[in-house]
Amino acid sequence: MSRPEDTLAADVHYDDTEARKYTTSSRIQNIQASMTQRALELLDLKFPSLILDVGCGSGLSGEILSQVPPEEGGPHVWVGMDISASMLDVALQRDVEGDLLLADIGQGVPFRPGTFDAAISISAIQWLCNAESSETSPAGRLSRFFNGLYSSLKRGGRAVCQFYPKNDVQKQMITSAAVKAGFGAGLLEDDPETKNVKLYLVLTVGGNATGSKDIADVVDGMDGVDVLDNRKKGEKGGKGEIKKGSKAWIIKKKEQMERKGKIVKATSKFTGRKRRVQF
């Protein structure tokens, strides 16, 4: 698959032609909708919320938020940020309900602290791995984004970012930037090792206020999540001589992870899916 992220700036790639092509493709509409549904499920919002859509594009993800029925805790109100004027233009033509900001998330998130109940980002943040100019570095842009996102969320809030890393280096770079900003972080992979693999970074904002949750509790309530907490809680797991990938190996790994304070959980309606626990 070609990766425009590797060669172009996002606002150059998503010009008028590409923005229209992207938005009118029913294949893309379906994929973005189902990933947004998955993100919503992970957010587990109980009542109508104020949500930030990071890299909202033409609103394919955001409009799902507006459509959540009251029985499922909606509808939500959202604000979208995107760097591509062409994508936002298509959003306007489609008359989306969210408010739109022409903004570069690598420059930060311009909302006062504790603004949002939650945030989603669907297929956008991998773009931050490529510096848009010589004055900025990917690390600097990632850190400004995650620091801004962290502060813009209310305590106890969550963010779910589905993204397409080019490789493990990018995956690591993004995850560690989130953790450095203060988030409790976990990675969830749907359909691993298939060409439809989808990676979700699940972020929680802790805090000491009552009602705030530790990532362990948060994950407890989530369906089908194999989440790894990046905090270290003491002892390292012993070396195993067991064949990698075998059932015994998996059980051993899970024990190791539990000992490290990581969360191992895999029972839900998504259990039928192939999934991989990551380290």
């Binding site: 936002l88 739109l100 570069d104 420059q107």
Partner: peptide, 8 residues
């Protein structure tokens, strides 16, 4: 058109 430009 309702869109605020926050590019700096």
């Amino acid at each position: 058109e309702g869109i605020a430009n926050f590019l700096l």
